[in-house]
Design a protein around this nucleic acid. Sequence first.
DNA 1: CCAAGGCGTGAACGCTGGCTCACTTCTTTC
DNA 2: GAAAGAAGTGAGCCAGCGTTCACGCCTTGG
Lengths: 221, 221
Amino acid sequence: MPYRRTENVVRRLAARREAIMQAAGALAAEAGIAAVQITPVSRRAGVATGTVYRYFPSKDELVGALVHDVAEREIGAMRRAADAAPGPLSALAAAITTYAARALGSRKLAFALIAEPADAADDARLAFRAALAAELGRRVSAAVQAGLLPGQDIAVAAPALTGALIEGLIGPLAADARDETGTRDAVQALTLFALRGLGVADARARGLVVGTTVPGRERGG
Amino acid sequence: MPYRRTENVVRRLAARREAIMQAAGALAAEAGIAAVQITPVSRRAGVATGTVYRYFPSKDELVGALVHDVAEREIGAMRRAADAAPGPLSALAAAITTYAARALGSRKLAFALIAEPADAADDARLAFRAALAAELGRRVSAAVQAGLLPGQDIAVAAPALTGALIEGLIGPLAADARDETGTRDAVQALTLFALRGLGVADARARGLVVGTTVPGRERGG
DNA sequence: CCAAGGCGTGAACGCTGGCTCACTTCTTTC
DNA sequence: GAAAGAAGTGAGCCAGCGTTCACGCCTTGG
């Protein structure tokens, strides 16, 4: 029975697989997920396009493996930092700062995968988000200047607020299919989160967070 | 000089343009931006594909116009609600609740445009986000159960927190190219925002928010 | 050194989807 | 009703990109 993979070959195969994933990661870091295309990846990894398919059954699986790796590494770092903290609250703080520090430090490496790519195609969506952030930022600024909120970096607060609103209610993570009261509760919870984040200590007591009625659509569809 | 557009024709043209944009919006609402393709849009609008190009020079412009419309409408609603409020803080609260209520009420209509589509292709990214949210949610739960945070709906808080972290630092809205101290400040500001949002009244006093050193990369690229 | 068979290759295939254009149809003006 | 030209049409073109496959090379076991 001729040919059985020797230890050396196994290593070489693993190295190639690794090279392919590295190439994919580099491309993602430089130009977003959309830039992870088989031909560029293979060229960058120094192999032929067909070779990629010896290691990954499809492009989706390649990307999946890449994201999985990165996620494991990043979340692992958060977890380690949190577990080393003395209590639940500082664990939370440690997780957050770890995330934040790593996001900024290796932004292009790891986090291109969760952030929107700078794709020309969806400039439009970014414009919407930006407009939202701008509007909210103006309001926050006004409240700060009126002395109703603590001073803060609007360039951080406005996007963070926008992100919380998007992800908290309409993003893919948000649980949908809530009933009527569930909806009201969610809106309240999110509003509370947002206002507290901005520095309102007692939004409820001040009557800022109240029940909301979901308005009907203004335009058909 | 034969043929000059009569008033009636102008109206018909405007109506067609509107029909095309409505069709595009409906498709976006039902299946995400990726589903806004010329052929389906034209079919839905009851015109030929070529006709679409009589009204919009390219698909990107069509999508752009659509998003612009929606953004104007939604942000307009926020602004009106805010302007009707008695003070800056309740203006802010009004803007947020208006956003939230509309997002939930007409989610499929308007906000499919800023949320990620349920595209099968980028399942991977969602997985990352979901893992992040799960990890953070666990930590928040632990802190709540330890009595260190006020009770809250984790299903809202975790995604909101995740969104704030993503958009606040690595999203396309976040100002990049910060210097070293700017980075530290941003991390601090975001951590403060996040912890306050979760209900920590005095994160700074408790020593939870401290200076951070951005760690080096753990893996090349 | 030979047989066996995995591994590497890259040109080519096929599908998808944006866009065009030669042609028809409709509208206005005279 | 005829000329002029705008508006509508949709089959087809073209580019990008994921995927395949027939072939040659290399490694292994005998």
